[in-house]
Design a protein around this nucleic acid. Structure first.
Length: 254
DNA sequence: AACGGAACCTGAAAGC
DNA sequence: TGCTTTCAGGTTCCGT
């Protein structure tokens, strides 16, 4: 499910629960007895660094989440692994099983292959322009490539393109410098907005009961565009749903 | 190397 | 109500 903001929230939670404490029980026996030094994140990957050189990598996939439990509490439904330390018990739960939970002694390839992370490295307009210009595909699809900007998923891409008034089908090599600058601003804003949704120990997601859709266009096909009132349209791009406004995200800018 | 599409899973929501 | 279809915020693999 999650994109950069949800994963960053998970990172902060895990850090709060586990950092500084010694692992007493874990999905991998090799981790027991080591102290949790830090919890870092790049894109949608989480990495826990332990004192004797072990590393835990976690990707939430579509439906993964980390829950805070007491060590004596029973196994969760769909629990795929746990990490107990300092009286806390973090449970990795993932119904759809697209997520990952790995114990390694070195960085995994997927982690090393990630492009710049907007929070860790900053999102630089020139770097974004270079990465996009090197590709020949639609902007929307390029934004989902984790080598372009780490952590962008379908929601952030959809929201940022709407912000920047760019048609998701526009080719990466045809974007103007102004459009790329607007896109970078749109991504930063969407990330900040996403981060602001999260507080406390529990992850929150769009589909959670009673929750309103907090996004401007994502999941709002058929509704009026919040900017120009034209009807938002849903198309499929790279096998994923994409919502946009055909009036204020025009194919051509001039 | 890069692209487009299918595959991997399961649950929830919508459609009939 | 119950069965069927569609959709889901992610990555990876495969053929071109």
């Amino acid at each position: 499910m999650p994109e950069l903001p949800e994963v960053e929230h998970a990172r902060r939670c895990l850090e709060r629960w586990l950092a500084g404490a010694t692992v007493t029980r874990a999905f991998s026996g090799a981790l027991v007895g080591q102290r949790v030094l830090e919890v870092s994140r790049r894109g949608k990957w989480l990495r826990l660094t332990l004192s004797e050189g072990a590393r835990v990598f976690s990707h939430l996939g579509m439906t993964g989440r980390w829950l805070r439990r007491r060590p004596q509490e029973p196994r969760e439904r769909w629990e795929r692994g746990r990490l107990d330390a300092g009286g806390e018990s973090a449970r990795f739960v993932d119904p759809r099983r697209f997520g990952r939970l790995l114990a390694r002694r070195r960085d995994v390839k997927a982690w090393e292959a990630l492009g710049p992370d907007p929070l860790v490295d900053g999102l630089e307009t020139h770097a974004l322009a270079r990465a996009l210009a090197a590709r020949r595909r639609t902007v929307k699809e390029a934004l989902l490539d984790q080598r372009v900007v780490a952590g962008v998923g379908n929601i952030l891409a959809t929201e940022a393109l709407w912000s920047a008034r760019i048609d998701p089908r526009a080719r990466t090599d045809r974007l103007s410098a102004r459009q790329v600058a607007a896109l970078a601003r749109g991504l930063r804003a969407a990330i900040a907005h996403g981060l602001a949704q999260h507080a406390g120990d529990a992850p929150s997601y769009v589909q959670d009961a009673g929750g309103d859709n907090p996004f401007r266009v994502y999941g709002r096909a058929g509704e009026p565009c919040p900017r120009c009132r034209a009807t938002l349209v849903r198309i499929v791009l790279g096998a994923r749903g994409t919502t946009f406004c055909p009036r204020c995200q025009p194919r051509s800018t001039r």
